[in-house]
Amino acid sequence: MIVSPSPHLHSPASTNSIMRDVIIALLPATIVMLLFYGWASLLVLAVACVGCVGLEYAIARWLMHKPELFNGWSAGVTGLLLALNLPPTTPWWVVVIGALVAIGVAKMSFGGLGQNLFNPAITARVFLLISFPVYMTDWDLTGGFISSVDAISGATPLSIIKEGLMSGMTLDEIMEVNGINASTIIRDLGGSGGEISGLALVAGFIYLWIRKVVKPWIPLSILLTVALISGVFHAVNPQQFAGMEINIISGGMLLGALFMATDYVTSPSSKWGGVIFGVGIGVIVMMIRYFGSYPEGMSFAILIMNCFVPLINRAFHQKKYGRA
């Protein structure tokens, strides 16, 4: 018989059960992505997942000689998030490079699960965005199983707006010329794979919230900050700055806020630390969207705030019992 110190019981939750929950939560968005983008996106999904899981196994086993560092569920989550971040037309070898950057560079070189400073899937996305800008910005909706009413192939709404503004058009003109409005964006306009499916993402997040896997502070503070900044700027100059709805439902906003910024390892541990983290992401993403040269800045914003997590964790702690 065993003799060991208390506690003698353990909760049913495990790292694997948490990762499984995240995958379940991402399923609605994944299904929407497959429906809208078709076979091409299935290939991206398969390559990303197999690539991430396979690379993590290979690196842990043969490069680090610590096979116990391999966690298939966690690598699968990274693969799924990577796939949701890539356009359906991304060539398979670019996806493999993405998996290599996510698992090899962002995760395993820092020591594997729990040790990484930056979100692996976002690191890969940013790497690919800078290295292969053409592949990374072409969102082809024509291959989908559901044909979109106003299917627009190519650029995302945010990049259409950015290009239009740079060429001197006003926001109204851009919207009219390209047939963009808030409802078309949420229904069927291109964005990263998972981004066209805002409702599916929100549904998945609510599942995680109910299962007590995530807390809402980070997404709420990001979205409220974005809403506040875009609301004020849009009110001041409606022809220059896109409004609240467009900023919240387009681009990587929801996927980033709900699933990437909430990554345990790369976000602050305390509630108020999480709020600071979220506000920081919200401010940075809006500054990039309004004043930067990229149309979209969610990935950059999350990576930049990832750097501050160790500092935020030093400054914010839990409320302790019996101590002021």
Binding site: L113, Q318, K319, K320, Y321
Partner: peptide, 20 residues
């Protein structure tokens, strides 16, 4: 067997003394 900490903070959420 012990596996790596994933910084989920469940321990800190559960601690009745508010420790981390």
């Amino acid at each position: 067997p012990e596996t790596p900490c994933i910084s989920c903070c469940r321990c800190a959420d559960a601690c009745p003394m508010g420790l981390e």
